[in-house]
Design a protein around this nucleic acid. Sequence first.
DNA 1: GCCAACGTTGGC
DNA 2: GCCAACGTTGGC
Length: 158
Amino acid sequence: MPGHWLFKSEPGEYSIADLAREPRKTGRWDGIRNYQARNFLRDEVKLNDLAFFYHSSCKQPGIVGIAKIVSAPYPDPGQFLPDGPYFDSKATPAAPRWYSVDLQHVETFATVITPGDMRNLDGLENMYLFKQGRLSIQPVNDQEWQQIMALAKSRAPR
DNA sequence: GCCAACGTTGGC
DNA sequence: GCCAACGTTGGC
């Protein structure tokens, strides 16, 4: 059984449409610089797990589709690039601090599933999204995943 | 733009 | 190690 996650991104930085446009619809999920998110990414995200793609800090925040984890976690190259935005002077190749995975686009939903939609469903009260909303990589349990998928499938394309 | 939540920094 | 100050996130 693959694990389930919620990955957040500001669409102005990197949107689900950007992912879908990548060669082989596959891109690197990088730039994670929060230790709790890092720990999930490094220690618990597994090849073939599925993730909700969540757009934050935008006109219509919410879950916009699904992506699949198509690599094992590996050190985020950006931490070693002195001129890049993600440089970390304390990280070394022998002792990397930050990690990335590769994601492949699976599906873009017909409509955005907003936090308001999710608050209205019984059983989603304990989602990380509501308990610890700022975390950029969050586990989603099987029941939560299935409820949100059912809602997404019930929506007619606009 | 506001503001609550919360992570990080740094002096002591 | 404590904790105040500060910065960032992110929904509204």
